[in-house]
Design a protein around this nucleic acid. Structure first.
Length: 256
DNA sequence: ATGGTTGATCGTCAA
């Protein structure tokens, strides 16, 4: 089973690229983030033509998450349950007995900002959500844009980035807390020592060509699934396409 | 040099 994630930065701009990538890679489930549109504007037909069903949590202009899948999902749930959030950042459903969650975690803007505080509070709600979800769904994959580079290894220039948003100690503690619930970072599980492996590059300063990036998009899997993990790859190719998303897709392959 | 890019929406906000 292949489960992938991609922050597409507007699904209305990127639907054709997503379609091309789906046709090439044929993941069983693709978690999308930053749709930047309402469900009524979602390009359902483009994915339907490729044999993919969609579950969509959209909103006007910002955020928005979805699950594309070869087989329809069941038991769809939108949001974090006990945390009322007007921003659409979480959608979950079950595929072939695997609970899959697509997450778009807050960016945080800068340390000390209101958005940074919201990010930390939001991660506390995500922590409670995952704790509950694992009780009900021990076979769980949560994939998306976490907006956190977990270790210095995940940053092109750790000294320049030290203490900045996306890698500040409080953010990293929130990420580690999620792992402490029994989730593993699939990429690090497969490639513990690989450096210079990034999933996001700024549009400015020729960041992609110079590989000035961060690894902030992650596929996390519950412990029961890890023994079946075969591979996890960041596909940099779509980031080099014309008018790309600033994020690359990440895909984990499980032998289940 | 407080610059630089992209997207939603149409004056800024968000990333």
């Amino acid at each position: 089973m292949k489960i992938a994630t991609w922050n597409v930065n507007s699904v209305r701009v990127r639907w054709s690229q997503v379609g091309d990538w789906l046709a090439q890679q044929r993941p069983d489930v693709l978690c999308l983030q930053e749709l930047k549109c309402e469900a009524s504007q979602f390009p359902w037909e483009a994915f339907q033509k490729l044999g993919y069903s969609a579950l969509v949590a959209g909103q006007k202009a910002y955020n928005g998450v979805a699950l594309l899948s070869r087989e329809p999902g069941i038991d769809e749930e939108v949001g974090l349950g006990d945390f009322a959030d007007p921003q659409q950042r979480v959608i979950a459903a079950t595929f072939q007995g695997i609970r899959v969650v697509s997450v778009y975690c807050p960016n945080g803007d800068s340390l000390g900002s209101d958005k940074y505080q919201y990010k930390l509070t939001w991660f506390d709600a995500l922590q409670r959500y995952v704790q509950r979800a694992l009780e009900r769904y021990p076979r769980l994959v949560m994939a998306g844009d976490y907006n956190i580079a977990p270790h210095d290894q995940d940053i092109h220039d750790p000294k320049a980035w030290a203490g900045e948003v996306l890698c500040s100690p409080p953010e990293r503690e929130k990420f580690e807390a999620l792992l402490s619930l029994g989730l593993r970072d699939c990429f690090r599980q497969v490639k513990p020592w690989e450096s210079e492996a990034f999933s996001w590059w700024h549009y400015r300063i020729n960041a992609f060509k110079r590989n000035l990036g961060l690894r902030i998009d992650h596929v996390l899997a519950s412990e029961g699934l890890i023994e079946g993990l075969q591979d996890c790859q960041i596909d940099k190719v779509p980031r080099g396409w014309e008018r790309p998303s600033d994020h690359a897709p990440v895909m984990a392959t499980f032998d289940l």
